[in-house]
Write a protein that binds this DNA or RNA. Structure first.
Length: 457
RNA sequence: GGCGCGGUGGCAGAGUGGUCAUGCAGGGGACUGCAACUCCCCGUACAGCGGUUCGAUUCCGCUCCGUGCCUCCA
């Protein structure tokens, strides 16, 4: 079965047919770096990381580009608030973002372009738009003239008129048309600015991605992705800019052939927002949960569906991963053999990245397979989904944390005493010892191989 | 107001025109001195109303409910 994906451009699930099967190219809009990454940022990163891994499974060469937006007014605000420079803000949060994503098993994109390093490309593209009559200068701003683009609205399915009718922002007086959007805007001294044919200024947000995608992937490329909220206006504007800059206003696929959007994460059923103060940061969650647990939780709903974050989901993923790692631990000395990719899992992944189904199939595999076959299948799936990347010993290693050597000897002494008590059928004493251990925060389990113990929280 | 998305068993969450999702939680059982772990078994789920059909949770229409975007929020 071939790879299928849901193309936002025509709202249909389609067979993925690469422009060039020997080199597939994908771009996904990355974060604006002015704060810690939240779980919503993480969902985007994880989803497109899996897409990239899946594409690599199918095709010999994949270039995945995902940008860092390091020019934006919010960054300027953050710098002022924190009393540090703009570049200190962007540098700091870029590192935090990459570290946090790495903790979720997200591989660094092949290219991670930064907006500030592509100002010239943006200026060039804006110039081309002006030359072709799609943009104009007004009071130090350069604006894209929406009525000049006959196909504007193709992605979001809203016409210019509808957009104007629904607009809730005041229209700047210098705009020729209410729908026109900014390509370049003037900067004052304390704002970041670059020289341009239109004076000292900075780029609008949309032009950044257009310029960076073209520079690193060339046009057209295969897949463009991002969060669902970016569909309008960001992605709509990207299409307008990139197509019109090259005289391809009529062909919306002259920029990217497929468009993929991931759904939002809600918390307790509500959207994360500053006013509700319910932003969940990866930085915080990673303190209490393993990265792969968070990652799998982010993949527990289909990527296009909304995902409600809850402790229950985390609990379930923890159990599943523990179960799998337990098997991997038992099989640690077994050699990996060459196995076929488990068919139902491959089909699920091929079907527009149906990761919830993959999770269900994992449960079945854990029940139905064993030995080298199980280990090999698990690892093969893990490479695409981005799980089972840890050493099984390390996975369970944390459970020994905070238990000193002294405690260990004490525990073992008590266990030895308990075995003796059991042998003497002195179950009262045996149970006393169990309770004593429990008070120390140690839980024991009698198995056929003997008694195990572990720290409980 | 405009443009979308969704309503599946206690919960999470896939899927299908007519035999199974899966997991968590819950109930029962096996095992065990008892617990726990493990294993086995169980529960008349598809918002409502019409329509198409031999047959619809699955297709179409309407209603109700929830939710996202339209504000340089992933």
């Amino acid at each position: 079965m071939s790879l299928k994906l849901y193309n936002s451009l025509n709202r249909k699930k389609e067979d993925f047919v690469p422009l060039n099967p020997s080199h597939v190219k994908m771009y996904a809009c990355g974060p604006t770096v002015y704060n810690y990454a939240h779980i919503g940022n993480a969902r985007m990163a994880v989803v497109f990381d899996v897409w990239a891994r899946m594409l690599r499974y199918h095709y010999p060469k994949v270039t995945y580009a995902s940008n860092i937006t390091d020019v934006e007014d919010k960054i300027i605000v953050a710098a002022k608030e924190q009393g540090i420079t703009i570049s200190e803000v962007t540098k700091k949060y870029t590192k935090i973002y990459n570290d946090d994503m790495a903790s979720l098993g997200v591989q660094l994109p092949d290219v991670q372009p930064k907006a500030t390093e592509h100002i010239q490309e943006m200026i060039d593209q804006i110039s081309a738009l002006i030359e072709r009559g799609h943009a104009y200068e007004a009071e130090g701003h350069v604006l894209f003239h929406v009525p000049s683009d006959p196909t504007y609205g193709a992605l979001s399915g809203r016409t210019r008129d509808e957009q104007v009718a629904g607009a809730r922002v005041e229209v700047a007086p210098y705009k020729r048309d209410p729908a026109d959007f900014v390509l370049w805007k003037p900067s004052n001294e304390d704002q970041l600015g670059w020289d341009s044919p239109w004076g000292n200024g900075r780029p609008g947000w949309h032009i950044e991605c257009s310029a960076m995608a073209e520079k690193h992937l060339g046009l057209p490329f295969d897949i463009h992705g991002g969060g669902a909220d970016l569909k309008f206006p960001h992605h709509e504007n990207e299409i307008a800019q990139s197509c019109c800059a090259h005289g391809n206003a009529d062909d919306v696929t002259s920029f990217s052939k497929y468009w993929v959007h991931n759904g939002f994460v809600t918390v307790e059923g509500e959207k994360m927002s500053k006013s509700l103060g319910n932003f969940l940061l990866v930085h915080d969650l990673i303190k209490d949960h393993k990265g792969e647990v968070l990652r799998l939780a982010l993949l527990s709903a289909h990527y296009r569906q909304p995902l409600d974050w809850s402790e229950q989901v985390l609990h379930q993923m923890q159990i599943l991963l523990d179960k799998a790692y337990q098997k991997l631990l038992e099989l640690v000395d077994v050699d990996v053999i060459d196995v076929d990719f488990v068919v139902p899992v491959l089909n699920a992944l091929n079907d527009d990245l149906n990761t919830p189904l993959v999770i269900a199939e994992l449960n079945k595999i854990l029940k139905e397979q064993d030995g080298a076959e199980l280990k090999s299948s698990l690892l093969k799936i893990g490479d695409v989904v981005g799980i089972f990347q840890e050493d099984p010993h390390d996975w369970f290693g944390d459970e020994m944390d905070g238990v000193s050597d002294e405690d260990v000897s004490k525990i073992e002494a008590l266990l030895a005493e308990r075995i003796e008590a059991k042998d003497n059928k002195d179950y009262t004493r045996a149970d006393e010892i169990r309770d004593e251990l429990l008070e120390m925060g140690i839980e024991i389990k009698d198995t056929r191989e003997g008694t195990n113990w572990q720290k409980v929280s």
